[in-house]
């Protein structure tokens, strides 16, 4: 029980505040150096002509809330968007940036925008404005470019698996580049009386550029809570843009109480699994940052079904 408690707490902290995953193989693993860090990702999902841009800054490991009209702005050569807070004071910022040319880079800069940042307010914001001026983070920037678009070949949508030992062959057209690959899964299991959602993430080694990754269903649908807590949960910045992309707002949000008190018999529950394959390319951060990551990525999704009791 103690282990469950500690693990559950760690999972919650990981997912809610972005604490380290503990996985050093993870290309997005948190790097909480002392000083100012940033985690920034821009992702183009298959079939879309815009990028979801997610950003967070950390000071000595603590997420920084940008206030007083300091904002993240994502721009291409022709378009720009201010990132909005996922919720007030979460320190996570997200926006949708139209992309005219997927070969062009995106720059994410911390700007001071005293009027634009208040545009949702009801009164004349250009007349009534208490502006303390730009904060010390203003001017920091990162640049990312997008890897080749992902062409996810299989499995096809709504493929059904009935055994936890089944292997899932995930195939795609390899790009021939050295971009990193990642598989994220948003899993919702339910029976007649309850539902449980969580998210998992795996780094994929594709050094041979085969375009094939095989994963067993039991790596996605676990059979007890201890196993679940040992799995690598979705890193927070990935979770945010996946949540926005596939519209699963509770993506990855798993609590101890969910695991220990769930009425779901995971052995018999039906699960819908959204698999999102992500091709990631590391970008560059301004030298003023002491650490962190900037990533450009492309992604594609498919949904598979786990039906242990048959169709």
């Amino acid at each position: 029980m103690n282990r469950l408690h500690v693990s559950g707490l760690c999972a919650s902290l990981l997912l809610l505040s972005g604490c380290p995953t503990g996985s050093t193989s993870n290309s997005q693993s948190s790097q909480f150096n002392d000083g100012l860090n940033a985690k920034i990702q821009a992702n183009i999902h298959e079939g879309e002509s815009s990028a979801k841009v997610v950003a967070a800054a950390f000071q000595d490991g603590v997420r920084v809330n940008l206030i007083a009209a300091d904002v993240f702005e994502a721009t291409t050569a022709t378009k720009g968007v201010l990132l909005k807070s996922v919720n007030v004071h979460t320190g996570d910022y997200i926006g949708t940036l139209p992309i005219d040319d997927k070969g062009q880079p995106v720059t994410i800069t911390i700007q001071h925008k005293p009027i634009e940042a208040r545009e949702d307010r009801w009164y004349p914001i250009d007349i009534l404005n208490v502006d303390p001026g730009p904060g010390e983070l203003v001017g920091r920037f990162a640049t990312v470019s997008f890897p080749t678009e992902l062409d996810l070949l299989g499995p096809s949508n709504n493929t059904i698996y009935m055994d936890r030992d089944d292997n899932i062959n995930i195939t795609w057209n390899p790009s021939g580049s050295e971009d990193d690959m990642r598989l994220s899964a948003a899993i919702t299991c339910s029976n007649s009386s309850a539902e449980l959602s969580y998210g998992l993430s795996y780094s994929i080694s594709d050094d041979d550029n085969t375009g094939l990754y095989t994963i067993a269903m039991n790596k996605l649908v676990y059979n007890d809570s201890i196993t679940a807590l040992a799995l690598e949960f979705v890193e927070h910045i990935t979770r945010i843009f996946l949540a926005a992309t596939i519209e699963v707002l509770t993506f990855g949000l798993i609590e101890e109480i969910d695991l220990t008190s769930s009425t779901i018999d995971i052995e018999t529950a039906n699960c819908d699994i959204n698999l999102t394959l992500i091709r990631e390319r590391e970008g560059s951060l301004d030298d003023e940052f002491d650490g962190g990551k900037a990533i450009g990525s492309t992604s594609a999704s498919t949904t598979i079904l786990y039906r242990p009791n048959g169709i």
Binding site: A68, P124, L128, V130, G135
Partner: peptide
Amino acid sequence: ELELEENFWDIIPGGKVSD
């Protein structure tokens, strides 16, 4: 006349403006 009182969670000084 509209008056705005704006504060920044006491992290930095706020103020009032009106017009």
